[in-house]
Design a protein around this nucleic acid. Sequence first.
DNA 1: GTCTATACAGCGATAGAC
DNA 2: GTCTATCGCTGTATAGAC
Lengths: 208, 208
Amino acid sequence: MSVESWALRRTLTYVQVSVKAPEATADRILDVAERLVQTRGFHGFSYGDVASELGITRAALHYHYRGKDELGAALIERYHSRFRARLDEIASESASALERLRDYAGIYRSVFADGRMCLCGMLAAEFDTLDEPLGRALLSFFDTNYGWLASVLDEGREAGDLQLTADSRATAELMVSTLEGAMLLNRPSSNLGRFDDVIARLLDQLVA
Amino acid sequence: MSVESWALRRTLTYVQVSVKAPEATADRILDVAERLVQTRGFHGFSYGDVASELGITRAALHYHYRGKDELGAALIERYHSRFRARLDEIASESASALERLRDYAGIYRSVFADGRMCLCGMLAAEFDTLDEPLGRALLSFFDTNYGWLASVLDEGREAGDLQLTADSRATAELMVSTLEGAMLLNRPSSNLGRFDDVIARLLDQLVA
DNA sequence: GTCTATACAGCGATAGAC
DNA sequence: GTCTATCGCTGTATAGAC
């Protein structure tokens, strides 16, 4: 390869990097592990599964994440942070409280449509087997959800858009429970229509 | 110990046996494994855990249940059969549809109060890792639930006790989703009060 | 029906070469 | 940053004695 073409290649590569950074191994590990946790559970996959899918060895995984617990913590952290970012987006782009709730449910819908269980819902099932930092991170995720939903519900009530028959926080928890439960039970049959029904009825209750 | 007291003991033991049979090893295995699945998930415990708790060896377990899949199938079968029996009881002892629904929710409540997740809810989360017979048994369990609930809802509507805004089957599925979701999310914090709230609001919706 | 003994694959994890 | 090699442990499973 000539010096010129090498320089060109290098430039092109650099340009590509500046447009969309090639995913670092640490992130690709999270991508694979995330999908495996969401479909098989935290104890339903191994370092070997992740490594073979990425074409690296188990030892390489340990370089990026010391152990499975650390990997789990990183998974929750990234999931939580993305979720928060999406909630901010919804808050900034949706006008009415009802629209925000619909968009919120849409997050769960897209996870379900992808054949996955909510990462944190899955981990909640396995809660007794998680170490303490993981458990705390999990509760924190749901706390974010409840808090965000409750404030949207309060706004909707004040604006007269929504009718709440109970405490907004309790209603928020009921909504998340229903969404998580619907994912849990409809995933085996991949019944997206049924999942949509649940969302529709959940929202109907608030405007009835 | 005298011959008389020994005979007495023996008689008493026999009487006790005739009243309540001493649990066979196969059943004690199911008891332990059931609790482990409900608290840790199907992949969150091992034959070693069950064996050590019962004071027997792993090899002895294999005599009763050839493998973990077979054990899982036996667990679902017993759980399903007990559930069906309880549903029959409720149908025969509860007068109104609303009472039956309350009793139905009470089944879930007692499981939750015992610090457990619903066996089949837990397995639903791990659905992708289960072999085909297990998956079918799982769907069959939920089908029993939906069918029973739907018929109670229909009776309640005809009797004028309940107000349904949608198809009874869809309502039944929504109810189970909500109960399973509430178990899933409140178990980490062992929040029984919150679980009771969910039940109360679920039933309120049907009479509102 | 339960045991000992054993097999063997897979697990998470570490050390050290490259 | 990834590899090979290896560790100790645990996993499910089987054979054969008692």
